Simulated scan of single mutants.
Amino acid sequence: MTGTAPAAPALRKGYADSPFGQLHYAECGAGEPVLLFHQTPRSWTEYLRVLPLVGAGFRAIAMDTLGFGASAKPEGPHSIERYADAAEALAQTLGLDRYHLVGHHTGGLIALELAARHPGRTASLLLSATPYVDEEKRRGGGHAVDHVVPHPDGSHLLDLWNHRRAFYRPGEESALNRYVIDALTVLDHATEGHAAVRRYAMEERLPLVTARTLAVCAPDDHFALPSLKKLAAALACEARLLPGGHAPVPEQLPEEFARTVVEWATADRG
């Protein structure tokens, strides 16, 4: 009889109550929790193909950041700290006492903030394309990559597509479609996550991170690549280049990204 590969773990979706309103998440698998945080202005779908791969050995959970995706969108200024408050609320509602943290771009700062707050609960930390925020970055202006002005003829849809088209390779249009959907969901504040990054007082938080940490980046991600060595030096952690990809590397190289997550989460098992 010919053997068959085990079925991928089923994808489950849910909502968790929080002081901010309901928080949406998707998960696969069981066991040690791995929390994954997405970039701005995305949603859990950035990890659509990563979740079942990590979920083969872990409970892989990707939440929609507060204010994005299907999570609550309260009024008030966005901040990394408030995003982390919501992530804490999700972890508490789901009964997660200890977890591995994974964050990509903006999500990396959310993961870092959680690791700084809860060193005893953080089993490991993986920072993907995470910006290094210092005074120079806080003073600098942000790029308008996700900003469009709505037009009655719908031409802003093409504007969104074209703003990130260069990040994707031919054949990756389905991932680019997901980006456009996510950006349209938060069109009135699509760039707020970028602004929250620039306001983050990172220097105060770095010394509080004690978890085993890995920093990675895609070689073509020119937004994040300059931060890789700075971040690794500040955290005294290992830095790696992933074998290809751009800003949407979890979608472009899901197998390699998931393998890196799993290897790092299990590195201390001997």
Rank of each mutant, 00 (worst) to 15 (best):
M1A: 10
T4D: 13
T4K: 14
A5K: 14
A5G: 05
A5L: 15
A7D: 12
A10E: 11
L11A: 01
K13Q: 15
D17S: 14
L23G: 01
L23D: 03
L23R: 03
L23N: 00
H24K: 06
E27D: 08
E32K: 11
E32V: 13
P33L: 09
P41Q: 09
P41N: 09
P41V: 05
P41D: 10
R42Y: 07
E46C: 07
Y47V: 12
Y47D: 04
A56K: 14
G57H: 14
R59C: 05
A60E: 03
I61P: 00
I61D: 03
D64K: 05
T65S: 15
L66G: 02
E75C: 08
I80G: 09
R82L: 13
A84T: 03
A89W: 02
A89C: 01
L90G: 04
T93M: 05
D97C: 01
Y99P: 01
V102S: 04
H104K: 07
H104P: 00
H105K: 02
T106I: 10
G107V: 03
G108T: 03
A111T: 07
A115Q: 05
P119W: 02
G120A: 06
R121W: 00
S128C: 09
A129G: 15
A129L: 02
P131W: 10
V133P: 07
V133E: 00
E136M: 09
K137D: 04
A144K: 13
V145Q: 11
D146A: 13
V148H: 08
V149E: 15
P150C: 12
P152R: 13
D153A: 04
L157E: 12
L157W: 10
N162C: 09
N162A: 11
H163Q: 13
R165F: 08
A166Y: 01
R169P: 00
R169S: 10
P170S: 03
E173S: 06
N177T: 14
R178H: 08
V180A: 14
L184F: 08
V186F: 09
D188N: 15
H189C: 06
E192L: 12
G193N: 08
R198L: 11
R199N: 12
A201D: 15
P207W: 01
P207E: 07
L208Q: 15
V209L: 07
R212D: 15
R212L: 11
T213F: 12
V216D: 00
C217A: 15
D220W: 06
D221T: 05
H222S: 12
H222F: 08
L225N: 00
L228R: 01
L228H: 00
K229H: 13
A233C: 07
A234L: 03
L235P: 05
C237I: 05
C237A: 12
E238R: 15
R240F: 05
R240Q: 14
P243F: 11
G244Q: 08
G244N: 08
V249E: 03
V249C: 04
P250D: 02
L253E: 04
P254L: 06
F257W: 05
A258T: 12
A258M: 10
R259N: 13
T260C: 15
V262F: 10
V262K: 13
E263W: 03
T266L: 14
T266W: 06
T266H: 08
D268P: 06
R269T: 13
